[in-house]
């Protein structure tokens, strides 16, 4: 996953991720690479492999454990199968608002979650903004959870996501990402859910009529470095990387905000009807999800995060 280029003594870390090069997340990673090169005077660099060239999220995480990749950017939901604590981010309406979200990520809880990967050979370096996920549908206008009744909604491969949509009243339907565009077009599913830039970049807006901004989940992206690489770095190198990460986080957050606005504009222009949702109704519909957490490992963590929202 890493190595020294003998000719110019540059320490190289290999980073694979899933998004294409136009995505704001990729641009954030390029910024991280340039920042690291600048701070280390060219003695360190990152080779970025975009578009799943070296594997999808789950596979690259494995390659880090195996030792042939050094870094990655994954959605916290892809980390669930490796680091159980990460399931917390898939809970609907965990955060009250943006402030609560960033207060959690930048605070102790966020730091503890980044460290929670250590036993699994992952060190979390920081978070990238991945916005909030909302529903989009092809035929039926959805305003309240009741409208989801009987609608086949494609969800990510995650038990939490399946139970969330089913609890709201929809019918969570597994469709592979590659088959989703045509599945929406032909009507195999009636809708799906994602954040705005992905709704835009995947071109799903071409075949969807309605976007409902219910913002049910806010699942951050996590930048991961393999512990085998991290432990090889000396204190100075670790510091360069951490500082670059902080700078990249701010940069990417701004890019993300711009990209979200731009995406919203484009999909509106393309004729998608954008509906503002009464989030409180949706929030109420998912209360059973929290009921079912009683007594589970996540309960304490959820309480901790919720309390951060109350203090404001």
């Amino acid at each position: 996953g890493c190595g020294t280029d003998t000719e110019d003594e540059t320490y190289i870390i290999r980073l694979g991720h899933q998004l294409d090069i136009n995505h704001p997340v990729h641009k954030g990673l390029v910024f991280l690479k340039e920042e690291l090169e600048r701070r280390s005077n060219g003695s360190m660099s990152i080779v970025i492999y975009p578009s799943s060239q070296v594997g999808d999220e789950r596979e690259v995480l494995e390659l880090i454990q195996i030792g042939s990749m050094g870094m990655t950017k994954v959605s916290a939901s892809a980390l669930e199968s490796f680091v159980p604590e990460m399931k917390v981010f898939s809970l609907p309406y965990l955060f009250n608002n943006q402030e609560h979200y960033w207060k959690t990520l930048n605070g102790n809880v966020g730091k503890e979650l980044l460290a929670a990967g250590q036993p699994y050979r992952f060190k979390g370096l920081g978070y990238f903004d991945a916005g909030s996920r909302s529903f989009y549908t092809t035929k039926k206008q959805v305003v309240t959870p009741d409208d989801l009744q009987g609608q086949k909604i494609r969800v990510m491969n995650s038990q939490t996501a399946v139970s969330m949509v089913n609890t709201m009243g929809g019918a969570a339907t597994p469709v592979s990402w590659g088959e989703l565009y045509t599945s929406l077009q032909q009507g195999v599913v009636d809708g799906a859910e994602n954040n705005l830039p992905s709704f835009y970049y995947s071109k799903h807006y071409e075949v969807s009529q309605y976007l409902i901004l219910d913002e049910h989940t806010s699942i951050p992206d996590v930048i991961i470095i393999g512990t085998h690489v991290w432990e090889q770095l000396n204190a100075e190198q670790q510091k360069w990387l951490e500082e670059s990460m902080l700078a990249a986080t701010d940069f990417q957050r701004e890019l993300w905000a711009e990209s979200t606005l731009e995406s919203l504009e484009v999909v509106k222009k393309a004729g998608v009807e954008v509906i503002e949702a009464d989030k409180s109704v949706f929030q109420e519909s998912v209360l059973p999800v929290y009921e079912s957490l009683k007594g589970s490992d996540l309960e304490a963590l959820v309480k901790q995060i919720k309390s951060l929202g109350v203090e404001q």
Binding site: I21, N22, T182, Y201, K203
Partner: peptide, 19 residues
């Protein structure tokens, strides 16, 4: 059409409409 690989190209090119 429909074609899986054209969808992949659309994503890689970052802007060409799948339709």
């Amino acid at each position: 059409p429909p074609s899986n690989i054209l969808i992949i190209y659309s994503l890689a090119s970052g802007g060409v409409s799948i339709a």
